[in-house]
């Protein structure tokens, strides 16, 4: 029971605190990092959903040839996909930040008001 509450709370708290970081951000690099924090909430959620007490790693033959139960490998594969997508999105956003810094001379989202060609 306690573990359930802790896992779901930490996942939700990470999403919210990441979103708060985006809202309060005064620097676009900070915004990108805050987005990564919000995204890591999904990792906690997925890994917690696949956890089983006393289960071993999802490698066949590692813990006695399938005799002991393993944790859910499906959510682990999803987290792997999630991390790859997160890394590519971070790279793209940081490249955009470099362009904004070069074109506008600032990375403060509040000072970016006008469109410029």
């Amino acid at each position: 029971m306690t573990l359930t509450v802790v896992a779901w709370t930490v996942a939700g708290w990470l999403v919210l605190v990441g979103a708060l970081g985006i809202v309060r951000s005064r620097d676009l690099v900070h915004t990108v990092v805050a987005l990564s924090v919000a995204q890591s909430g999904t990792y906690v959620l997925l890994i917690a959903a696949g956890f089983q007490r006393g289960a071993t790693v999802p490698i066949l033959g590692a813990g006695g040839a399938g005799s002991s139960p393993v944790v859910d490998p499906l959510v682990q594969a999803m987290v792997l996909t999630d991390i790859v997508v997160s890394a590519t999105v971070t790279a793209l956003l940081l490249a955009l930040t470099i362009q904004i810094a070069k074109r506008h001379g600032t990375v403060d989202p509040d000072e970016l008001r006008a469109l410029r060609g």
């Binding site: 573990l3 359930t4 896992a7 779901w8 917690a48 959903a49 696949g50 956890f51 089983q52 007490r53 289960a55 999802p58 490698i59 066949l60 033959g61 590692a62 399938g66 139960p69 393993v70 944790v71 859910d72 490998p73 499906l74």
Partner: peptide, 24 residues
């Protein structure tokens, strides 16, 4: 969290064993 009911796990492990892939 931590129960032993994981239907996707059961299906995935069986499919991995059928194709002789140790890392599920």
């Amino acid at each position: 969290v931590g129960t032993d009911v994981h239907p996707y796990r059961d299906a995935a492990v069986a499919a991995a064993a059928a194709h002789a892939t140790a890392n599920v």
